[in-house]
Write a protein that binds this DNA or RNA. Structure first.
Length: 189
DNA sequence: ACAATTTGACCGGC
DNA sequence: GCCGGTCAAATTGT
């Protein structure tokens, strides 16, 4: 039975990996705005793989605990009650996914158009960063209202090539069906 | 009048 | 104390 589920796990892992490769291939020949979507797909795959690993290590269970046996823990004195406690319940911090895109801006391209990823952001800061000759801008999702969206991005203009921007996203958008559908218009008058 | 941006202040981590 | 990140008051845009 165990080997059966192990086999399935391996198959699932294999499928996910195949998907990753497809996306990577797509990304290699992509341009501009679709790139961020592809990056997000990639981080989803990576997260899936991570979750799979966690499930696997959960199944193995106690073997992890044996590590602490040689630690100078609670003594074996029968007077002392050893509390099982939550030693084994490592709740892994759900780190938000982070990825950065390189965006090259052409001169006839207006910055806004090129940097527009279809979401609406609100700028909340700008800082000069050591080693960068251009300031870095900080944006958060425009509807971070209530328990809304925690998605964030930073924009950093490249030192050497002022036409290249490094856009770093952190966190997935939890907001859906919002106003950003109406993004790609902004016609020049 | 309201909403978004700007910008120095502020804060936490190293 | 410096550095990167965020806050928030002032300013600017619509």
């Amino acid at each position: 039975m165990e080997s059966e589920s192990l086999k399935e796990r391996k198959a699932l892992e294999n499928e996910i990996t195949k998907g990753m490769e497809q996306v990577k291939q797509l990304r290699a020949s992509s341009s501009g705005n679709e790139e961020s979507a592809l990056e997000r797909m990639l981080t989803s795959y990576e997260e899936a793989l991570l979750i799979l690993q966690e499930i696997a290590s959960d199944e193995q269970g106690q073997s992890v605990m044996s590590l602490s046996s040689d630690a100078p823990g609670p003594s074996k004195d029968s007077n002392i009650i050893s509390i099982p406690s939550r030693v084994n319940t490592y709740r892994r911090r759900e780190a938000p996914p982070v990825w950065t895109n390189q965006i090259r801006v052409t001169s006839n391209d207006k910055y806004e158009t090129a940097l527009d990823d279809g979401y609406s952001w609100r700028k909340y800061g700008q800082k000069d960063i050591l080693g960068f000759k251009y300031p870095r801008s900080y944006y958060r999702c425009a509807y971070s209202h209530g328990q809304g969206c925690l998605a964030t991005k930073q924009v950093q203009r490249s030192n050497d090539d002022p036409f290249t921007f490094e856009v770093t996203y952190r966190g997935e958008h939890t907001c859906i069906g919002q106003a950003h559908v109406a993004a790609p218009q902004r016609r020049p008058s």
